[in-house]
Write a protein that binds this DNA or RNA. Structure first.
Lengths: 133, 133
DNA sequence: TATTGACCTAGAGCACGCTCTAGGATGTTC
DNA sequence: GAACATCCTAGAGCGTGCTCTAGGTCAATA
């Protein structure tokens, strides 16, 4: 499926606001956006794919600076493949670290809820309080 | 192990700055902090445990508003156990959603890296570009 | 041709979570 | 008793990532 559209439709496709799309472009996150005869931005399939990928990175904690770097590199073609791989591998490591944090927090919550349940059951606060809230 | 200390040591124990600790207290994240004869804050074991738990929540995306709510509830004793459980279960669901996002992103990165590798191997960009960067 | 809606630029404003400054009090050490 | 670290309050400032306003242009529709 091929795309060629103005900013409103594009914003819908990548699930960001029109304001945000223009701001992303100003931040260097969207390469080579064309204009129509009336000066309006025209987006193509590649822009959608690029932004959907960045969106996934953003939602997992990649900063605008890193997304800009990735975008800069990608407009420079094959010479930057290694640099892009390196950036992505760093982000992947950050993702793994986040997953570890999240799993630990989920475990802490389970322990806390069990603590609350015991408290409620016995109608008195249990002694060995591991982590309080 | 039992703790009774001033703000500097406390900040070390929970790995936040002294500034941040005072700010957290102003935000209602630290309940019932005592003072010594000179007016300096005195922290106990329970404060350390409370903050270490909040720190885990914070690192997994819990907002200051939610941490404040949890703190408010916890100073009110057993009557708020259900409310606390509910809040924690909501956060646990948010954590599961984050983990799903992170796993999807890791998968996307792997696909992108594979794409780059094929590009480098063939010295030309592969056709079926699923997600571009 | 008048209206309407989508678009344009430039720049201000905002929510969040800290982070730091200024000016001063306290308390331990030499 | 003087120096120095650590603490205090009140409040300003900052980095990030948007979000919105003002004032105007463009093009399709009635």
């Amino acid at each position: 499926m091929s795309v060629r559209c103005h900013i409103g439709r594009f914003a819908q496709l990548v699930d960001r606001s029109v304001h945000t799309i223009r701001w992303y472009e100003a931040q260097g996150l969207i390469p080579a956006v064309g204009r129509d005869a009336g000066g309006r931005r025209v987006y193509e399939t590649e822009h959608v794919e690029h932004l959907l990928f960045l969106e996934r990175m953003r939602r997992t904690g990649m900063s605008v600076a890193e997304m800009r770097r990735l975008t800069e590199l990608s407009v420079q073609g094959w010479r930057t493949l290694e640099a892009r791989k390196s950036l992505l591998k760093d982000h992947r490591a950050a993702i793994e670290a986040q997953i570890a944090d999240l799993k630990a927090a989920a475990h802490d919550i389970d322990a806390k809820v069990a603590f609350y349940d015991e408290w409620a059951r016995n109608k008195r606060r249990p002694r060995p309080e591991r982590g309080s809230a």
